[in-house]
Structures are given as structure tokens and as C-alpha cells.
């Protein structure tokens, strides 16, 4: 299945957001969005990943 992960093309076999984070090796300190909508951490196991999804995985970063 082809998705866009953090702006880059990505092939995945993960069926859910939770599985995708494990598959792609993300650590625990991230927040997620699917197709522009926030996906709270407790919803990740129930949030499906489907063909063409745009997934954002964000982390704490420097800011002003």
C-alpha cells in the first residue's frame, strides 16, 4: 500500500496508525495526524491506514 509519510512516498503493510508507527520505527514521543486530522494516541490502534493516506508524525522541536 502506498501512502505519504511526513511528505515522502512510503510503502507500508501496516493496517493501523499504531502498526505504522511500530513498522517505521518511531519512538514514543510523537503526535499523529491522518489526512489533516489529529489522531489522538488512544485512537491509533483503531485508525485504519488506507491507500493514498497522508500521514504526519510530529515530534518536539525548537521553536520561537
Amino acid at each position: 500500500m502506498n501512502i505519504t509519510l511526513n511528505g515522502a512516498p512510503c510503502q507500508t503493510a501496516a493496517a493501523t496508525m499504531a502498526a505504522l508507527l511500530v513498522e517505521q520505527g518511531f519512538g514514543p514521543k510523537v503526535a499523529t495526524a491522518r489526512n489533516g486530522d489529529f489522531v489522538p494516541a488512544p485512537m491509533r490502534p483503531d485508525t485504519p491506514i488506507t491507500e493514498g493516506d497522508r500521514i504526519e508524525v510530529l515530534a518536539p522541536m525548537q521553536g520561537g
Binding site: N6, G27, L58, A59, P60
Partner: peptide
């Protein structure tokens, strides 16, 4: 301290520990 969120590219946890 102000901070932001950006696409995770490996530095998130380290920065979080720092701030």
C-alpha cells in the same frame, strides 16, 4: 520556553529531554 512540532526525523526525543 517556546517550542514547536515538526516532522520526526530522529531528534525529537533528545530535544524533549533537553527542554
Amino acid at each position: 520556553a517556546t517550542v514547536s512540532l515538526r516532522r520526526e526525523a530522529g531528534g525529537g526525543q533528545g530535544f524533549w529531554d533537553l527542554v
